[in-house]
């Protein structure tokens, strides 16, 4: 190994080939499932069930997408998902950034104590059942607000923003407050525009979290169908398909089988909802990438 330079460069070449192949393979493994589901959604369901659309759609058709448009509750669940993402993100980002701003003020009485009061929530929480009982007591079950209120203040995001504001030059704000601007004016007119990078980072992460969440839908608002989100709609379809598949296995008579097959939602429809539910992530992803490093680096400073 440690011989001549030429020998070294051959082993280096072998390593590089291996490295490139491995890395590209990992990337393809990450992306391929999405491609397959996308191909499936554009395939003719009957053809696709015989011959899998491994690399390209089988019998290209928009039938699945047309069927989605007529699907019961699809547009409504899309609306709920969009609403919770927009309102939830706006509320959470405002609360975290304003509170973070207030915590940068040394003049706040009891600042250290209150700051710790918020930080503690990163390490300890009541747990699922106790939280459920409390939400129930507040009368939030089966209301839209259970999507928004509990996540309004994230200690972690608040710390990210506070850390960012602290490193801004204080002179900018001082000159404004000399002109008689209050804290709120200073926050909206000076601090917020200057904190754009960190605010954008937090917006992206909160919005993705809101769009992706389904568990609160499952435990708090299951009984209220008008609050079904897109993710939960997909969950229901998948669950139902799995249940029926299990029934099929244990079905004794042929009538059982035909009944079960008739009840199952077509695979193409499920694949199409999967594509549509992941689409927003793909669309905002290029914008998100810009903020990765930033979000993580600030997080690391805290860690």
């Amino acid at each position: 190994m440690e011989g001549t330079t030429i020998k070294k460069s051959t082993s280096r070449k072998v390593f590089l080939v291996f490295d490139y192949v491995l890395m590209i393979a990992i990337a393809l493994i990450c992306i391929y499932p999405f491609w397959y589901v996308l191909c499936y959604s554009f395939s003719d369901t009957a053809l696709a069930s015989i011959n899998s659309p491994t690399f390209l759609p089988r019998g290209f058709t928009l039938a699945n997408y047309k069927e989605i448009l007529t699907l019961d509750g699809f547009f409504h669940s899309l609306l709920i998902s969009v609403l919770r993402t927009v309102i939830g993100t706006a509320a959470s980002v405002f609360c975290c950034s304003f509170l973070g701003y207030l915590f940068t003020k040394g003049k706040m009485p009891g600042r250290k104590l209150l700051y710790r009061f918020v930080i503690v929530t990163m390490y300890i929480n009541g747990g699922m059942i106790a939280t459920y009982i409390v939400m129930k007591a507040y009368g939030l079950l089966n209301t839209f607000w259970v999507y928004i209120l509990p996540g309004m203040i994230s200690a972690y995001n608040m710390v990210l923003i506070k850390t960012y504001i602290e490193q801004l030059p204080p002179s900018l704000e001082e000159s404004a407050s000399l002109d008689g601007a209050g804290y709120t004016t200073c926050f909206f007119k000076i601090i917020l525009p200057l904190s754009k990078p960190i605010i954008a980072t937090v917006i992206v992460f909160v919005a993705v979290g809101q769009w992706n969440s389904w568990f609160d839908n499952h435990i708090y608002t299951r009984a209220n169908e008008s609050l079904t989100t897109l993710q939960y709609l997909l969950y229901n379809y998948l669950n139902e398909a799995q249940r029926i598949a299990e029934q099929l296995k244990s079905a004794s008579s042929s009538t059982d089988v035909t009944q079960a097959v008739a009840a199952i939602s077509p695979k193409g429809v499920r694949m199409t909802i999967t594509v549509l539910a992941s689409l927003p992530i793909f669309v905002v992803y290029p914008f998100m990438q810009k903020y990765f490093a930033k979000g993580i680096m600030v997080g690391a400073v805290k860690g």
């Binding site: 890395m23 590209i24 990992i26 990337a27 393809l28 990450c30 992306i31 499932p33 999405f34 397959y36 589901v37 499936y40 069930s49 899998s52 491994t54 993705v208 769009w211 992706n212 969440s213 389904w214 993710q231 939960y232 997909l234 969950y235 998948l238 398909a241 799995q242 598949a245 695979k267 499920r270 694949m271 909802i273 999967t274 539910a277 992941s278 992530i281 793909f282 992803y285 998100m288 990438q289 990765f292």
Partner: peptide, 29 residues
């Protein structure tokens, strides 16, 4: 490589479950 290896982190578990079903269910690829 970086783009596609980091992306799955932003995909919800429901969607991952759906992808896994498409690939690994009894009629999966």
């Amino acid at each position: 490589v970086q783009t596609f290896t980091t992306m799955p982190n932003f995909i919800s578990w429901v969607i991952i479950f759906s992808l896994a079903t498409a690939l690994f269910a009894s009629d999966g690829l």
